[in-house]
């Protein structure tokens, strides 16, 4: 449906319809409507209000850098190789932004990437990655170690 609309407008205006988004750091970015339509939060607003696309739509939780990455990912049809160039921080920022923007395909894609990243990683790596503080009591920690020893004897020690 979105494609037909986009193509129609293409034919009418001889140019791709764009929506202006305003990022948290105050940058106004013109984004193709087909990409914007993947962002449920913006799409629902546009559809309900039939808003004037020249008025910037504010995205207070997404930086211009993160939005750039997301646009590139969508344009590249979720290219694994491109995703691999992301730093851990960028990966997390895209995850949080994808959740905020409610982009289902992107969320799925990035969940896979993060799951792959966590594979065979030490507890310390995971704590660092998510910035998690170890909040176990010594008793709880001992209990988990005991259970895991019992469950998977060959579980790698960190």
């Amino acid at each position: 449906m979105q494609k037909t609309e986009g193509e129609e407008s293409k034919a009418e205006n001889e140019e791709v319809k764009q929506v202006t988004l305003m990022t948290s750091d105050g940058v106004k970015m013109k984004v193709e409507i087909s990409i914007v339509y993947e962002m449920e939060i913006v799409r629902s607003f546009i559809e309900v209000n039939d808003a004037d696309h020249s008025v910037p739509f504010p995205l207070p939780n997404v930086s211009s850098h993160t939005l750039d990455l997301i646009i590139e990912l969508v344009k590249n049809e979720y290219d694994d190789e491109f995703m691999k160039t992301f730093s851990h921080d960028e990966l997390k920022e895209v995850l949080v932004a994808a959740n905020y923007l409610n982009m289902k395909t992107l969320l799925d894609f990035i969940a896979t990437a993060i799951a792959n990243l966590l594979e065979k990683k030490s507890v310390e790596f995971i704590r660092n990655f998510f910035n998690i503080v170890n909040d176990f009591t010594p008793e709880e920690e001992a209990e988990i170690r005991k259970t895991n020893e019992w469950v998977f004897q060959d579980l790698d020690e960190d």
Binding site: T112, L118, V123, I126, E140
Partner: peptide, 15 residues
């Protein structure tokens, strides 16, 4: 998307 073994490993990260 994680294997049983990895899920068990993640239990050690935090509550």
């Amino acid at each position: 998307r994680l294997s049983p073994k990895e899920l068990a490993g993640l239990c050690k990260v935090c509550t």
